[in-house]
């Protein structure tokens, strides 16, 4: 059995002389019933530039990714390409490389991130998504680029498969209001992201029932039962998590 089914299809085309599997196994294949679309577990790698200028996979409390040490360095969980390669071997279904801070500056200038994606695509044969910076942009010379121009420009960088679909990311907050009047006085309590320990099942259910496109549930979770729950209780097509990858807390 070839380890990567997709690559085996390609290999068998390129080299038809490679031996065939046994007849009875093939006949069994023809008889089996088709299954259905699988739920995906997407691994999120939060990539930041550390003080030495290297891209590292990090993890933070909201936007604070620095260690609580004297050196106060950027939390370093490993090199993006090495980690991606490892989790690919471990069976990750897809990857999201996020760099919310660097892309804020000028997404087209983020060459190290683009290089990470190029290297990753040479070793990781599952879908890759890049996040951050896909928006309207005015450069230093006052040249305005609409969101689609920005996107088009990025697609010229010869990246792997990044542009076959567009993922919209929504970072919702659950807002508790005791008294409607309170809203006017801005005393609304906002639950900070990262404080929830599990997927917000109610919210994901509401959203996934309201739209006809695939929904990726995002949550700060690392436990297998949380994935089982979100897939059982909601219509989410995939679940995204960073903890599973960054800290190997789940197999």
């Amino acid at each position: 059995m070839f380890p990567n089914v997709g690559l085996s299809v390609l290999r068998r085309f390129l080299n038809p002389k490679s031996g065939r599997t046994q007849l009875h196994a093939r006949q069994k294949l023809v008889q089996r019933n088709a299954s259905k679309l699988a739920k995906r577990v997407s691994v999120c790698l939060d990539v930041r530039t550390n003080d030495k200028g290297d891209l590292v996979v990090t993890k933070g409390d909201q936007y604070d990714v620095r260690e609580r040490t004297n050196a106060n360095e950027v939390r370093n969980l490993g090199k993006p390409v090495d980690l991606a390669r490892q989790y690919y071997k471990d069976g990750a279904d897809e990857f999201s490389f996020l760099n919310n801070t660097a892309f804020r500056e000028f997404p087209l200038g983020d060459q190290p991130m683009l290089q990470v994606l190029r290297y990753a695509s040479g070793n990781v044969f599952v879908p890759l998504t890049v996040g951050g910076g896909i928006r309207d942009f005015t450069d230093g010379n006052g040249r305005f680029m609409a969101i689609c121009e920005n996107w088009e420009e990025q697609s010229r960088t010869d990246l792997p498969s990044l542009w076959k679909s567009v993922v919209v990311s929504i970072d919702p907050r659950r807002v508790y209001v005791k008294d409607l009047k309170a809203v006017e006085f801005k005393t609304v309590k906002v639950r900070k992201p990262g404080q929830g320990k599990v997927f917000d099942i109610d919210l994901i259910k509401l959203i996934s029932d309201a739209v006809s496109i695939p929904v990726i549930a995002s949550g700060v979770t690392g436990a297998v039962e949380h994935f089982t729950e979100v897939f059982r209780e909601t219509n989410a097509s995939a679940a995204l998590t960073a903890r599973i990858s960054d800290r190997k807390e789940v197999n």
Binding site: M1, G6, R12, R32, A34, S212
Partner: peptide, 28 residues
């Protein structure tokens, strides 16, 4: 849900060599 995104199973209709290793695996 459209688009159809993700890993799905094939129902094999023809004994063709390039699909020999598919087994029970899904494809993207």
């Amino acid at each position: 849900r459209v688009p159809h995104i993700g890993w799905n199973a094939l129902g094999i209709a023809k004994d063709t060599q390039i699909l020999d290793d598919i087994g029970k695996s899904h494809v993207y």
